[in-house]
Amino acid sequence: MITTIIYEGSWLSFLTVVFEIYERKLGAVNILKNNKAQINIFGVPLLIGADPPKAKRVIQGLKAKLTTEGLKNLFSCFLSEIEGIENDMLSFIRLVFENEKSVETAYGYPEVLRLSKIGRMVYREKHRMEAFVRFQLTQDDIYYSSIEPDFNVIPLITNHFKKRYADQKWIIYDLKREYGIYYDLVEVNEIYFDFKNDYQSVKDEKIFKDDEILYQVLWQDYFKHINIASRKNTKLHLKHVPKRYWKNLVEKF
């Protein structure tokens, strides 16, 4: 008998789910995010919300068994939001707790290899976003950028941008997930636009500084002229800059 568990979708609530599974000695489970859950599931699903002390105990257990890298990788997998990832993560966690030795690099286990691969995919997307964010300077001196990453990587890129752009205000907004981060020269906070109104104004050129367009044109020109036409390699170009990112890249406007 498979127990269906519906959780609220946050990292803490996922860890709480893991705690409850051990606490209640549940066997086969199917973990679903509350917005993804189907109505016609058999049996009564178990609803689980975030319980920080319980989540903390799971984290401590994992920390004792995994390296920092390994734990980070698990978190990255969670951010992939791939359907069913919670179940893969659970089988990985079970494997971790069942074994005396660390299984982190036991790539012969399918769940270890799978999570290592998904973690790498998310890491690559994080790296891409650190590269592909394109700020535009607004009249009120905020550098603004829209992104639409494949995975929810904002939690992974926050520190990078905070360290790098310490002396300017900036916003990075994930249009797909409808939230962003705002750095006000002191700290970074999550922000949410009133989408219809606020986002329309971001698309309006008048909100940008006068020389914003000049720098965009300079960048586009630079991009064009640094290319060596006789070495054209479209396949390689597309591999590194896939088309789905173009709409937010100034040089590809």
Partner: peptide, 12 residues
């Protein structure tokens, strides 16, 4: 970080 790639596939 490579911020973009030219059409000849080189890192910028």
């Amino acid at each position: 970080i490579c911020h973009t790639y030219t059409e000849d596939g080189r890192c910028v």
